[in-house]
Design a binder for these strands. Structure first.
Lengths: 341, 341
DNA sequence: ACTTCAAATGCAAGCGCTTACATTTTTAAT
DNA sequence: ATTAAAAATGTAAGCGCTTGCATTTGAAGT
């Protein structure tokens, strides 16, 4: 739809500067290969015309875009934001540009976005979690676009990855909860389908429960989409049971924030009447009242390392083993001893 | 760096299907122009080869990308996230893809990102706020890339825009504060330089102050970068003055959340000892304790309308006047009457 | 069977850029 | 001065795709 009038091309610049297009191209891409005087002349022409190289043409000719794509489930909250920001910064200092798309947790949208980014010549991709259609991995391989998986880790993963063991992390937290005497534990989990992080976290809780003689099926699990509202609703429901739990473990901090709000609305004191835990340690966790006991994830570190690793792959480096990041349990106010029955 | 081996091209598909490249191209872009039987054959070849059109080549030949770029100051918090999500959804249903970049509030990065997106063939751009180097606007015009400005509104704006009047909105809120008897008002503003939203909000407070006989220079203004920590620090500083303010107005909800935390840390009750207000009404505002009095901005509406407007521009529609969205003051717990001296 | 015309397909010219290779200019050594 | 080597620049061949125009095919009408 753009008027073809006026957008200057390499040719225009070349003409204006009285050189060949090759020289202009070299001025832009490897300045050291053209002598000062000509370079100056060319640059002046570039400025005068307000020339910007046409990216499509450039990609086509050069096969390289210095663009990395990231596809995340959502931008609506800070879970990925922090890590992504670090990722972007690290890329930027290394001369790469980041393009982000989000999928609203819908696999078919993810596929679409992956294709869009690949088609746009992304040199590499950052993907969240490892659970997706194998055909997609085959596609990426075929297109020779390296993809790095973040926010997930398992020692036996097929693909380059950087993350942490969601299951073990949540288990660690659950151990803390159980150690404080909680036996009736409610769980508010994010939707498990197509979300390996959510399902692994849930498993982690079950692991701890089994280990301490609590039959996993005694856990009262509510699965709900992402959000503060949904977290609050789930909490309300949990606490209305005949035998309400003494502790509610949430799949992430956002759900936990909702749970906290619901507890307050119901006149329940946290942690006196009921304990609540989260996961991710986003800023929210320190702001809510009471402050939230949660699992701390080194988001920024993950983002930075992901950038370095991905650039390594893009530039032809070898595929290293999955990288596991250390998490830690942050004990804060929202977790207390179980209320004696 | 991709091995040239194997990535299938239009030609490969054409050969495999025994037709010309033109026919394959038509199959992909205007299927109705090719007869069923051939189309099937071609599609089979496409699938068999795992063919994806090369975007660069496509752009170059067709001049149209169905891609919209958005450049936002930060992804680290939900201020833009909510609106952006709506923006993306609206674009998606209309067949456009959204690519996002962030600038960390640095103008030179913004310029870079704008160029990157334009070069990548973005059909249109979403920009936040109107304050930027005029040369950039000229550049966009020259490249014939329509840009829509969001999160800002002023009746006399030169460019297509959708947003709200930050100054008037903040003034409205300030009136409420003053109406409750506050005369010593502290202000925690985001960095004003290069950020018209921040400076207009500040002006809004001054407007209200002047109107009620409070000399604007009596306002105690602290300017600080974005963040919860910085907000908390500013609050601490403010409350240590000899004559601490009875109300602290913050430039956005995130700063206000920090202020609230600092108040608690200092043993100050909100709003009994000091009132606090925010701006934006992000989810945070309802979660903090006490809940935050703030200005509600219709983020999702803004995102959706921005998408529609921008697509209109991209598809050659006329440039409408700036659109003003209605905001409202949300009175919640954090604002109370001034503590009598 | 023989036009006529529309529908389907093929041909080939770019789109704007990079880069191998060829050519010219400069530098330095004899 | 003369010449070889190095440095700077130019030439032109694609990169993979779309699309105007030419050609072929097929259906319909006589």
């Amino acid at each position: 739809m753009r008027p073809s009038r006026s957008i200057p091309t390499l040719d225009d610049v070349a003409k204006k500067a009285g050189v060949s297009t090759a020289t202009v191209s070299r001025c832009l891409n490897s300045p050291e290969r053209v002598v000062q005087t000509t370079r100056k002349r060319v640059m002046k022409a570039v400025d005068a015309l307000g020339y910007t190289p046409n990216f499509g043409a450039r990609v086509m000719a050069a096969k390289r875009t210095f663009t990395i794509g990231a596809i995340i489930p959502t931008m609506e909250n800070s879970i990925f934001a922090r890590g992504l920001q670090a990722f972007q910064e690290a890329l930027h200092t290394r001369g790469y540009t980041l393009l982000v798309s989000s999928t609203a947790y819908r696999p078919e949208v993810e596929e679409e976005q992956i294709r869009a980014l690949v088609a746009r010549g992304a040199d590499g991709l950052l993907l969240i979690g490892h659970e997706r259609d194998p055909a997609l991995y085959r596609y990426l391989e075929r297109q020779a676009v390296p993809a790095l998986i973040a926010w997930a880790y398992a020692p036996d993963m097929q693909h380059p990855a950087i993350g942490f063991d969601n299951r073990a992390a949540m288990r660690l937290l659950a151990e803390e909860v159980i150690a404080r005497g909680h036996r009736r534990i409610g769980v508010i989990s994010a939707t498990v389908k197509g979300n390996d992080r959510a399902s692994e976290r849930l498993e982690g809780i079950k692991d701890a429960a089994s280990a301490h003689g609590i039959p996993p099926e005694h856990l009262c699990v509510i699965e709900t989409p992402y959000g503060i509202e949904t977290g609050a609703d789930a909490m309300t429901q949990l606490m209305q049971e005949l035998q309400p739990p003494t502790a509610v473990m949430c799949g992430n901090d956002v759900l936990a924030a909702g749970a906290l709000r619901a507890a307050r609305a119901m006149g329940l004191a946290v942690p006196e009447d009921v304990s609540v835990t989260g996961f991710d340690d986003i800023e929210l966790a320190r702001i809510v009242t009471p402050t939230l006991t949660t699992v701390h994830v080194p988001h920024r570190e993950m983002g930075t390392k992901a950038a370095i690793a991905l650039i390594g792959l893009v530039e032809g480096g070898p595929v290293g083993p999955p990288v596991e990041l250390q998490i830690s349990v942050e004990l804060r106010e929202s977790l207390g001893p179980a209320k004696s029955a």
